[in-house]
Amino acid sequence: MRSIHVVAHPEATHHVEKVVGGWHDSQLTPAGRAAAVRIARTLRDQIPAGADVELFSSDLLRTSQTADEVAREFGIEPILDPRLREKSYGQAEGRPQQWLDERFIPAPADGDRMGHYEGIPGSETRGECAKRVCAAMEEILARDCEYQIIVTHGFAATFVLTTWIKMPYEALGSVGFLTPSGSITTLREDDFYHNRRIVSLGDLRHLNPQAALAAGGAP
């Protein structure tokens, strides 16, 4: 049985400052750091003691800080990979969100959504982001390890998941998985049928244990 836990980093300074993230190297806020600790402890509870575990992370500060908390819990070193970064927004990064909104050209409902230029100099297309994230994910999946943890970003996480379920590149133009900041998504493949499942998507119960208890779930 292979299990993969995909973590979308928790609250970072660009969230509260209302500036564009992307490759802007924001760091976790105090609330984000506390959430990273909860994420690490939750993963420690979910993964058996003594299991073989690998940890991969985007190299941006907000993800590497999250990965550091997980690494401390498991006593392992994170492998930083810039291909797991969020989509680049070029000249918009670090600027007010309104600056981006005023210049952003949304992709058409049909046509070449993967190669669409959004109007921001230096920014990646959806396809460019997808190709690098998928390439990183293919290398991760080629490794022989029972438990793997991947710390990435909300937009990039979609391509981690599409690689997992072997969705072809041509189908990625309109797909999007909801993985909120601080969430954990659990992926699992069984050894008999080799079915790849998304066991839970964008789970936030570890950040709101009282809500989880009220819903009848584990904190």
Rank of each mutant, 00 (worst) to 15 (best):
M1G: 15
I4E: 01
P10D: 02
P10G: 06
H15K: 13
K18Y: 11
K18L: 13
V20Y: 05
W23K: 04
H24D: 10
Q27R: 14
L28A: 03
L28Q: 04
A36E: 00
V37W: 11
T42V: 15
Q46L: 14
P48K: 06
V53P: 01
L55G: 05
F56L: 05
S58Y: 01
Q65D: 12
T66L: 08
E69W: 04
V70D: 02
G75C: 11
I76S: 05
D81R: 03
S88P: 03
G90K: 02
R95H: 06
L100W: 13
E102V: 11
E102D: 11
E102A: 12
P106F: 06
A107D: 10
A107V: 12
G111P: 00
D112G: 07
G115V: 10
E118R: 13
G122K: 02
S123K: 08
R126N: 01
E128G: 01
C129M: 13
A130F: 00
A135N: 10
A136T: 09
L141R: 09
L141Q: 13
E146M: 14
G154C: 10
T158P: 08
T158S: 11
T163S: 01
T163K: 01
M167R: 03
P168E: 09
Y169T: 15
Y169A: 14
A171P: 12
V175I: 13
G176D: 08
T179R: 04
S181R: 12
S183G: 12
L187D: 07
E189A: 07
H194F: 15
H194R: 14
N195T: 15
R197W: 11
V199S: 03
S200I: 02
S200H: 06
L201C: 04
D203I: 03
R205M: 12
R205P: 04
L207D: 01
Q210N: 14
A211F: 04
A211R: 13
A212D: 01
G217F: 14
P219R: 01
